[in-house]
Amino acid sequence: MEGSSDIDLSKISVRPLGLADIDDFMVWGTDEKVAIFCTWEPYATKEEALNYIKEKILPHPWFRAICLDNRPIGAILVSSNSGSDRCRGELGYVLGSKYWGKGIATQAVKLVADTIFKEWTHLERLEAFVDVDNVGSQRVLEKSGFLREGVLRKFFILKGRTRDMVIFSLLSTECEA
């Protein structure tokens, strides 16, 4: 187990996130510490968050809640590419700040990597792009078996600032089958 956690990592699971999960979603969705490296700003109202769930999360092909005892404490998603990029997917995740450093995100990433290559058989490569300053997220990916490939300079505009991003990858052949 990572850190000084008393959390049983076998109780971590992923499942679809629904409208009924709004109160749990608001815990991390309103947290400025969580949103700092995300493309979204903290949600100001429950209505705003419900609209996001309805319009973006529910139609998404692979968006899941990270759950502790089936209660959402974060989210994880895989976005699929198309055309000649169809062999690649992009991983993203977010976790409530009170659960950071306990091995939960690492466990969730491992669960998703084991699952996504089986569900999406066309997928050969899973990628994650992490802000250079988000050291915690970089460690999650490294502990989950992802390879740090390099830094993409001035790659992404986040909240009005151009950011350097670290690219990580995991190949289907590197994942535990």
Rank of each mutant, 00 (worst) to 15 (best):
T115I: 07
W100Q: 11
R148G: 05
V109S: 09
V151L: 05
L111I: 13
D8A: 13
G18W: 09
G103W: 04
S5Y: 06
C87N: 12
W100I: 11
R15E: 07
E174Y: 03
F155K: 15
F156I: 14
N81K: 09
I53C: 04
L123H: 07
A75C: 13
K11N: 14
K159T: 02
E127N: 07
F117V: 06
R71G: 06
L91G: 03
R153W: 09
Y99A: 12
F156R: 14
F63I: 07
G96Q: 05
I157G: 03
C38E: 14
S169V: 02
K46P: 05
W120Y: 14
F25G: 02
S172G: 13
I36T: 12
P42M: 04
F37L: 03
C67N: 04
L58K: 10
L19F: 04
N134D: 08
I66W: 01
A20S: 15
A105N: 03
K46D: 03
T121E: 06
L123Y: 01
V78M: 08
F156Q: 09
A108E: 02
N81W: 02
W100E: 01
A113R: 00
S13M: 10
V109H: 07
E127F: 00
G83P: 03
H122A: 13
W120S: 09
S172A: 15
S169E: 01
L158E: 03
L68Y: 07
D85W: 13
D8Y: 09
E47C: 04
T45G: 04
I22C: 03
S137P: 10
V151W: 10
L91W: 00
T106S: 12
I66R: 04
W28A: 09
V166N: 09
G89Y: 00
V14L: 04
L171G: 06
I7S: 10
A44S: 13
S97L: 09
R139I: 07
R86G: 01
G136F: 01
G150Y: 02
W28S: 10
V166E: 09
V109R: 10
G160E: 10
S79A: 11
W62N: 13
F146K: 00
Y43H: 15
Q107D: 01
F63P: 01
S82N: 09
S137E: 01
D164F: 11
A128L: 00
R139T: 00
F146L: 01
Y43G: 00
T45L: 11
T106F: 06
E55Q: 14
D133P: 15
F155W: 13
S13C: 10
L152W: 06
S169H: 00
T30S: 15
A75Q: 07
I167R: 08
D114P: 01
C38A: 11
V94L: 10
